[in-house]
Nucleic acid binder design. Structure first.
Lengths: 224, 224
DNA sequence: TATTTTTGATAGTATTACTATTATTTAGAA
DNA sequence: TTCTAAATAATAGTAATACTATCAAAAATA
C-alpha cells in the first residue's frame, strides 16, 4: 500500500492549486530545486519557466508572485513537519521524551519522503533554513498574517509549546521557548555551515551537537 | 565637550567612505529612514536619490548595491552595540550582572545617540530587527564572510560568549548561547510586535518581558 | 590660479516583475 | 465520437529595477 500524504494549504497562497495538475506539481518540484540552487533573491519565474519548459505567464497562472510561492513552500514544510512530529511522538507518554524527539526532528537533516512524490523534503528543509525567515520578515507581515499565511508555522510552534507545558505546567514562557527552539534549530545549523565561528560546533560540524545544545538549553529552562 | 564616536568600518563595504562627505552622511541618514519606512525589499537607490536630492549614479559612487549598504548599516550597528556593551559593563566585576546588563542592552529599544549625529540608532535598531538576518541569509554569505563583512557581528557575539564563559567556565556552548541571545533578543521583539501568538508576551507587549525570558533561559542554561 | 576631486545631469541597457491576448492542446461530458 | 470547456503555449508589451557610462559644473585644495 502506498499512502499519499496531502497537506491542506491556505487557498489565498495560490491562484490555481498546483497540486491539481502536472504543470502545477512541476512548478513546486522545480522551484524547490531552483531556490535551493541559486537562492531566493536570484530566483525568478522566468528562469523557473525555462527550467520546466513552460512560459512565465504559465507560472503566474498558479502564483501571484514569488513571495506567495515562498509562503506556499514554507507553509507546506511546516505542515509536513507538524505531521511528522505528531506521527513520531504518537504513543509516547513521557512528555520529556516527546520533547527530545521534537528537538531531534527539528534540528536533523530531513530525508526525502516517498509519500510526497513532487516535494523533495531534504531540499525544502535546506530552503526553510536559509530563506524561511524571509517569509515573515517583510513590511506586509501584518496583511499576510491577517490572511492566515503563517498558521502552519504557528500551529507547529503551538504543538511544541504544548509539549513544553506538558513537561512543566508552571513554566511561564512555553510559546517563546518553542519559537526559540524552532528558530535556533535552523539558525545554529546555518551558522555551523556558513559562519562556524558563531557556534561551538566547529570540530564536528554535525547536527548531533546542535541537538545536544538545544536539549540542554530547553531542559535547563523548564526544570522544576 | 562633545565627543564624536567613530566606528571603524570594513573598507570593502563601500566604494567611497560615506563618513567623508556631506552627501555620504545623508546617504546613511536617509537610507536608514527609508528602509525603516518601506522595508529593504522596496528600497531602491533611485528612491533614496530622490529623497536626498541627488541622482541614482550619485549613490552608486558610494555603494556598489543595496546589499552592501545593508551590510554597512548592520555592521555599523553591531560595532556601535559592542561599544555600548563594553562601555556599560566597564567596571562591573560580577560577570552575572554584566551578562544581565548585556541582555538588557540587546533586547531594549535603543534611544537615539547624540554622539553620532547622522545615524538614528533607534531606527537602525528596528531595521536590524526586521532586516538584519537578510545580511547573511544569502547565497554569497561565504564570499561576504571571506571579506570579513560579518566581523562586527562575530565580535559582538564573541564578547557576549566571553562573558558567558566568565560566568561559568565549564559551560560547553558559550558561542551558540551567545548567538541565541542576540538573535532571540531581536526575534522575540519582532514576533511580539507582528506575530504575537508566537510569544508569551501578548498582554503587556513590552521588552521587559523579553528580557526576563532571556535572563531565565540563559542563567538556567549556565547554572553550575 | 590651476588642478584635482566631487557632484549633477543625462542617457542608456539588461533584467525583473508583471499583464494581456490569442491560438492550440487536452480532458471531460454529452 | 464529438462538442465544449478548461488548461496551456506563444507572443507581445509595459513599468520598474539595477545597474554603467559620459561629460559638464561646482567645490575644495594646492
Amino acid at each position: 500500500m502506498k499512502l499519499q500524504l496531502q497537506i491542506s494549504m491556505n487557498e489565498g497562497l495560490f491562484l490555481r492549486n498546483p497540486e491539481g495538475s502536472e504543470l502545477g506539481k512541476s512548478i513546486i518540484k522545480q522551484s524547490i530545486k531552483l531556490i535551493h540552487k541559486n537562492g531566493f533573491e536570484s530566483f525568478t519565474f522566468k528562469k523557473l519557466a525555462e527550467d520546466i519548459g513552460t512560459t512565465e505567464a504559465g507560472i503566474y497562472r498558479y502564483f501571484e508572485n514569488k513571495h506567495k510561492l515562498l509562503l506556499y513552500l514554507t507553509s507546506w514544510y511546516w505542515g509536513w513537519l507538524e505531521f511528522q512530529i505528531v506521527f513520531h511522538t504518537n504513543n509516547i507518554k513521557d512528555p520529556s521524551i516527546k520533547l527530545k524527539k521534537v528537538i531531534k526532528l527539528l534540528a536533523s537533516a530531513v530525508e526525502d519522503d516517498e509519500q510526497t512524490s513532487h516535494v523533495d523534503e531534504h531540499l525544502l528543509h535546506q530552503i526553510v533554513i536559509a530563506e524561511g525567515s524571509k517569509a515573515y520578515l517583510t513590511k506586509h507581515v501584518g496583511d499576510d498574517n491577517k490572511q492566515q499565511f503563517f498558521k502552519p508555522y504557528k500551529d507547529l510552534c503551538s504543538v511544541v509549546g504544548g509539549i513544553i507545558t506538558e513537561c512543566n505546567g508552571k513554566y511561564k514562557y512555553p510559546k517563546s521557548l518553542a519559537t526559540t527552539i524552532v528558530e535556533m534549530a535552523h539558525f545554529q545549523n546555518f551558522f555551523m555551515k556558513h559562519l562556524p565561528s558563531l557556534t561551538d560546533f566547529t570540530k564536528t560540524k554535525t547536527e548531533a551537537d546542535v541537538i545536544v545544545f538545544l536539549n540542554e538549553l530547553v531542559f535547563a529552562a523548564i526544570k522544576k
